[in-house]
Design a binder for these strands. Structure first.
Lengths: 346, 346
DNA sequence: CTGAAAGCGCTAACAT
DNA sequence: ATGTTAGCGCTTTCAG
């Protein structure tokens, strides 16, 4: 055991063990082709010195940095933090560390993030682009030629693998479900309508509503509890008040739910509710909320695995895969609870 | 703009600009003492080549790696993910990247985590130790002599700054609040009683209950919804059924809440409820749940700031601070809602 | 089975 | 104001 502070080097270990640096290098890299006796001696020296290889030196030599970058809107968001947890696990299993950077869905910060990560020469990147069209992002990605996978949202044009949920069909199914319950005035409450996922979900809603010959009504004004109350009031005062709400993201679902609670609107008898994205208490609140659940862990896992396939794939593999980028779509499920009317007891 | 793949080097930039490497180095480090003309020329060359300094080379030279390690039980946990978000922001503001590693509260993984982070020569560490007594962790930390700050939970013995919440007094206040509401049989539902935070909270509960001459009852068997139902049933069937529950962590609060809902136990009229840790829907559920709120962001921010103070502090500063490690305690607040009886309308 | 030595990209003396 | 050079810790030919 070393004192404290300074790090022992390969050379010091070699000197202590009375061997050359090459031998020590061999030992820490598996110990092949080393005499058992020397091997033991070197191991002991490593132990005594508390030696730990310097990753910077290794990667300077040309080796991988054994780090991968994760570029997401926010770590505090439950969806992305769960993805991050999963990705972290896969990274660890592959002997790599995860560097996390947040973008706040700001395209400029995205590009800046990639650049910073590239100074550190991360081996690969997992990202959730704010926009599918971020030209600058595409450029910077191809300029560095770094293996990358997107998650939750694709990036158009670049040859980049993506893991997404089946937002469109899930939304369609959810809307159809409300229609089957006899709902005729289904209003769609979106979050930020600039995001790919939201757009897809709107498409799904549209498709279902149109197919049933009903009217589309999309409302994107909900930002918080207050605006939710205003919007709900407004909606209910209109000539054709909604008999169902379809919310496109977690927070919108909660805002709408609370606003309706405060207004003493009966769910589902007065207005039914289905939300995109499951959350902790969706099953606990009264009434429990019907939602579309995304396999969050699977998304993070799949993205990371896809990345490490690229990273460890041989040149041949890479060539074979060339141009045929993976587009994984994970399956969501409709979790039927009370708010859609399935278990109405009135 | 470079083609793709290979990274330009300082030397290449120097050649293209027709200057020496020193000059380029000066330019990328602020451009002091460089003739405006050459400066412009070098800048152009950097631009054309898409040059980005290689961090590995810099740190090999002895500079900082500009990375800090975050070692937490889980990223998926809302408490820690919020801390992580805050820490990430501070790191970025200080020009550093955040490497996130999870421990699952396993002491061995903790030590392993530190070691892995040290191969990468992180400049500092923010951690939430599983146990205050992890001797091995202390050893490894002092062996590497790496600046470190703990968060949420302290680490005894090591000279390590810590940011914690006032778990003890918050718990005491919450319990006293229930007592003021006339509750006499307050049962404390703990999470994992091995954690520092939980222990402190139990202490606070004990202190308040004893001071009022009441009886302590601590129950640590709640793991999920099922066990919550069993425990609640059991408690209510006992000779002296509780008239209040104090839950010591997020998930326990939710489990207990749901179990009571299912049993149709009136909250707060039958049994009052106060929980440690606020969460999204605590204000939305019926009845809304009274909780102790921790300033989560502040914890992450303070920990990261403390770390960067150590990192950037001059030697004198460090000396002056020596032995007088910072022990920041952030203030929680009791958020009074319905479940404690404050707004009872019966 | 083992060692000597070159060189990865960068910065900091030390010249000029 | 600018260039030359040594060397950070490691892996990897290339010889022995």
């Amino acid at each position: 055991m070393n004192k404290q502070g300074k790090h022992a080097t390969l050379g010091e270990v070699a000197k202590l063990a009375g061997v050359g640096t090459t031998t020590v290098s061999r030992v820490i890299n598996g110990g092949e082709r080393v005499d058992p006796k020397t091997l033991a001696r070197v191991r002991k020296a490593i132990e005594r010195l508390g030696y730990m290889p310097n990753q910077a030196a290794r990667s300077l030599r040309g080796g991988p940095t054994r780090t991968i970058g994760l570029l997401i809107p926010s770590v505090a968001d439950p969806f992305f933090s769960s993805c991050a947890e999963a990705a972290q696990a896969i990274a660890r299993a592959n002997g790599s560390l995860l560097i996390v950077t947040t973008t706040q869905n700001d395209p400029r910060r995205e590009i800046e993030g990639v650049n910073i990560l590239m100074r550190h020469r991360v081996d690969g990147l997992i990202l959730a682009p704010a926009s599918t069209q971020n030209q600058g992002l595409r450029e910077v990605l191809t300029r560095w030629g770094v293996p990358a996978v997107t998650m939750d949202r694709p990036l158009e044009g670049g040859q980049i693998s993506a893991v997404t949920a089946d937002n469109f069909s899930a939304s369609k199914v959810a809307t159809e479900h409300l229609i089957e319950h006899g709902r005729r005035h289904i209003v769609c409450l979106t979050g930020e309508p600039t995001l790919y996922t939201i757009k897809e979900r709107i498409r799904g809603y549209r498709a279902a509503v149109k197919a049933a010959g009903l009217e589309c009504k999309i409302e994107d004004s909900i930002r918080d509890y207050e605006s939710a109350e205003r919007t709900i009031d407004q909606l209910l005062d209109s000539k054709t008040p909604p008999d169902a709400l379809f919310t496109l993201k977690n927070s919108t679902t909660m805002f709408a739910f609370e606003a309706m609670q405060r207004r003493n609107i009966k769910i589902p008898d007065g207005v039914a509710l289905v939300g995109f994205d499951d959350f902790e208490l969706a099953a606990t609140v009264k009434p429990s909320i019907t939602v579309i659940r995304q396999p969050v862990t699977e998304i993070g896992t799949a993205a990371a695995e896809l990345l490490f396939e690229q990273l460890t794939g041989t040149a041949r593999d890479a060539e074979r895969r060339n141009g045929r980028v993976a587009q994984v779509q994970v399956k969501t499920s409709l979790i039927q609870r009370e708010s859609c009317g399935c278990y109405s007891t009135t």
